[in-house]
C-alpha cells in the first residue's frame, strides 16, 4: 500500500517537474527575446552613464549570452519532448493494452493457420499411408 503511494507520488512529482521545466523554458525564451529586443534600441547619450563603445560592447556580449539562452531553452524543450515521448510509450496503458491484444490476435491467427495446415497434411499422409498399406499387403513382399 505504502509502495503504491510512493509510486503515485513519484509519478506526480515527475509530471509536475515536466510542467515546471516547460513553463521555465518557455518563460526563459520569451524573457531573453524581449531583453534582446530592448538591447537593440540605440541608447541616447544622456541615458548612458558609461562610454558609448563600452556600452556597445556590453550590449553585444549581453545579446550573445541571451541568444545562447534562447537556444539552450529551445534545446531543453526538445529534451522535454523526448522525455514525454519516452514516458508516453512506456506508460500509456490504453495504447499498451491495445498493442498487446493486437499482437496476441496476430499470433493466435498465425498459430491457427499453422495448425490447420498441419491437420491437412496429416489427413493427406493418412490417406497415402492407407493406400500404401493396401499395396504392401497385396504385394509379393508381404
Amino acid at each position: 500500500m505504502s509502495q503504491q503511494k510512493t509510486l503515485s507520488q513519484n509519478k506526480e512529482a515527475l509530471l509536475k517537474s515536466y510542467n515546471k521545466r516547460m513553463k521555465d523554458d518557455i518563460k526563459s525564451m520569451v524573457d531573453n527575446f524581449i531583453e534582446i529586443i530592448k538591447l537593440a534600441r540605440v541608447p541616447q547619450d544622456e541615458d548612458s552613464q558609461v562610454l558609448r563603445p563600452l556600452q556597445n560592447n556590453q550590449d553585444q556580449y549581453e545579446m550573445h549570452v541571451r541568444a545562447c539562452n534562447v537556444v539552450r531553452a529551445g534545446e531543453c524543450l526538445m529534451k522535454l519532448i523526448s522525455d514525454i515521448k519516452q514516458y508516453l510509450v512506456l506508460n500509456d496503458f490504453p495504447s499498451i493494452n491495445e498493442a498487446i491484444s493486437q499482437n496476441t490476435r496476430f499470433d493466435k491467427n498465425m498459430q491457427n493457420e499453422c495448425d490447420s495446415r498441419l491437420c491437412l497434411l496429416r489427413d493427406d499422409v493418412a490417406s497415402e499411408l492407407y493406400e500404401l498399406e493396401e499395396e504392401y499387403y497385396s504385394s509379393a513382399y508381404k
Partner: peptide, 15 residues
C-alpha cells in the same frame, strides 16, 4: 505540451 502532460497524468499509474 500541457495537453500531453495532462493526458499522461490521467492515464499513467506510475507502475
Amino acid at each position: 505540451l500541457t495537453k500531453h502532460i495532462t493526458y499522461l497524468t490521467q492515464v499513467s499509474t506510475g507502475q
